[in-house]
Amino acid sequence: YFQGQLNAMAHQIQEMFPQVPYHLVLQDLQLTRSVEITTDNILEGRI
Rank of each mutant, 00 (worst) to 15 (best):
T38H: 01
P21H: 05
D40Y: 15
M16A: 08
G45R: 05
L24M: 09
N41H: 08
L6Q: 03
F2R: 07
P18V: 03
D28H: 03
Y22S: 05
M16R: 13
M16H: 07
L24W: 10
H23L: 09
L6F: 08
Q19N: 13
V25D: 01
G45T: 02
A10P: 00
P18R: 05
S34W: 04
M9F: 09
Q30V: 12
L29P: 00
L24C: 08
D28L: 07
G4S: 13
L6Y: 08
I42P: 00
F2M: 12
R33G: 14
Y1Q: 12
P18I: 03
D40V: 15
A10M: 07
A10Q: 04
G4A: 13
G4H: 14
V25R: 00
I37L: 11
V35G: 04
D28C: 11
L26Q: 04
V20E: 02
Q30G: 07
L43M: 09
E36D: 09
P21K: 05
F2W: 15
V20W: 08
I47Y: 05
H11C: 11
I13F: 02
F2S: 14
Q3G: 08
D40S: 15
Q5N: 10
I13P: 00
Q19F: 14
L24H: 06
Q5E: 14
I42S: 01
R46V: 05
N7I: 15
M16P: 00
Q3F: 06
L43E: 05
Q3I: 08
T39C: 10
M9W: 15
D28Y: 06
F2E: 14
V35Y: 08
F17I: 02
H23R: 07
Q19H: 14
V35I: 12
R46M: 06
V20P: 03
Q30Y: 15
T39F: 07
A10I: 08
L6M: 08
T32Y: 05
A8K: 10
I37F: 07
A8P: 03
R46S: 04
V20F: 10
F17C: 05
R46L: 08
G45N: 07
R33C: 14
Q27Y: 11
P21R: 05
G45A: 04
L6T: 04
L31E: 11
Q3V: 08
Y22V: 06
Q30T: 11
N7M: 15
H11F: 12
Y1W: 12
H23P: 06
T32C: 05
F17N: 02
V25P: 00
T39A: 09
